[in-house]
Simulated scan of single mutants.
Amino acid sequence: MATERIIVQNIVMILGIKVLVMVLGILGLAGMWAAVMADVGVCLLAVGNSMRIFRINPAGEEIKAVSCPFRRDFGRHGNLRAV
């Protein structure tokens, strides 16, 4: 499924960039600001990549996203209730 493929792409991209920056930091080639900018940048890239789930297909019909299996409200003890 396309949604699962995008999720896997995001996870691999996030972990790959974080490991790369961590290795560069260990070698002394990247400082704290590089790590912060890489973290924020990879977050924005992942959100942008995830937006592809909501794109419109070539036939002009909207592709429906998978809905969350939880209600928006919380139970008595603060737990999410399954629908």
Results as ranks from 00 to 15, higher is better:
residue 35 A to I: 07
residue 21 V to Y: 00
residue 30 A to V: 07
residue 45 L to P: 00
residue 39 D to M: 08
residue 54 F to A: 08
residue 44 L to I: 11
residue 35 A to L: 13
residue 37 M to K: 14
residue 43 C to E: 03
residue 32 M to K: 04
residue 48 G to N: 02
residue 38 A to K: 04
residue 53 I to F: 05
residue 43 C to R: 07
residue 45 L to E: 01
residue 17 I to E: 05
residue 26 I to M: 13
residue 35 A to Y: 02
residue 16 G to Q: 09
residue 55 R to L: 11
residue 25 G to C: 14
residue 49 N to P: 00
residue 49 N to C: 05
residue 25 G to Q: 15
residue 19 V to Q: 08
residue 37 M to A: 13
residue 53 I to W: 03
residue 49 N to F: 03
residue 30 A to S: 10
residue 39 D to Y: 04
residue 24 L to Q: 15
residue 36 V to C: 05
residue 21 V to G: 07
residue 43 C to N: 13
residue 31 G to F: 01
residue 38 A to S: 12
residue 18 K to G: 03
residue 51 M to N: 06
residue 47 V to I: 12
residue 37 M to P: 02
residue 16 G to K: 08
residue 46 A to W: 02
residue 45 L to G: 13
residue 56 I to S: 11
residue 47 V to E: 01
residue 48 G to A: 10
residue 29 L to Q: 06
residue 32 M to P: 04
residue 47 V to G: 09
residue 41 G to V: 01
residue 39 D to Q: 08
residue 33 W to A: 15
residue 50 S to F: 05
residue 41 G to M: 01
residue 53 I to G: 07
residue 28 G to L: 14
residue 29 L to P: 04
residue 46 A to V: 05
residue 25 G to P: 07
residue 54 F to G: 09
residue 45 L to F: 04
residue 42 V to H: 06
residue 50 S to K: 00
residue 56 I to W: 12
residue 25 G to S: 10
residue 31 G to H: 12
residue 52 R to F: 01
residue 25 G to K: 12
residue 48 G to M: 06
residue 17 I to N: 09
residue 44 L to P: 02
residue 51 M to V: 01
residue 39 D to A: 10
residue 19 V to H: 06
residue 32 M to V: 12
residue 16 G to A: 15
residue 24 L to T: 04
residue 18 K to F: 07
residue 18 K to N: 06
residue 32 M to A: 08
residue 18 K to H: 12
residue 40 V to P: 00
residue 19 V to C: 11
residue 33 W to D: 15
residue 29 L to C: 03
residue 16 G to E: 13
residue 43 C to S: 05
residue 17 I to P: 02
residue 56 I to T: 13
residue 45 L to W: 02
residue 45 L to R: 05
residue 56 I to K: 06
residue 44 L to F: 13
residue 23 V to S: 08
residue 19 V to F: 09
residue 43 C to Y: 04
residue 53 I to R: 12
residue 50 S to V: 10
residue 20 L to Q: 14
residue 29 L to D: 00
residue 22 M to L: 14
residue 52 R to G: 06
residue 27 L to C: 10
residue 19 V to K: 13
residue 34 A to V: 03
residue 22 M to I: 09
residue 16 G to R: 06
residue 53 I to H: 03
residue 23 V to T: 14
residue 41 G to Y: 09
residue 42 V to N: 10
residue 42 V to T: 14
residue 22 M to P: 01
residue 19 V to Y: 10
residue 37 M to F: 09
residue 36 V to Y: 02
residue 54 F to R: 09
residue 39 D to I: 00
residue 48 G to K: 00
residue 40 V to E: 01
residue 45 L to A: 09
residue 42 V to K: 00
residue 28 G to Y: 12
residue 25 G to N: 14
residue 28 G to M: 11
residue 36 V to L: 10
residue 41 G to Q: 11
residue 35 A to C: 11
residue 46 A to N: 05
residue 50 S to N: 03
residue 33 W to V: 06
residue 25 G to V: 11
residue 46 A to C: 11
residue 27 L to Y: 10
residue 44 L to N: 07
residue 52 R to Q: 10
residue 49 N to E: 07
residue 35 A to E: 02
residue 30 A to M: 09
residue 40 V to R: 10
residue 55 R to Y: 01
residue 19 V to G: 12
residue 55 R to I: 07
residue 37 M to Q: 12
residue 44 L to Q: 03
residue 20 L to V: 15
residue 24 L to H: 09
residue 55 R to A: 11
residue 26 I to N: 04
residue 49 N to L: 02
residue 25 G to T: 14
residue 27 L to I: 15
residue 32 M to C: 05
residue 31 G to I: 04
residue 43 C to K: 05
residue 22 M to G: 14
residue 25 G to R: 08
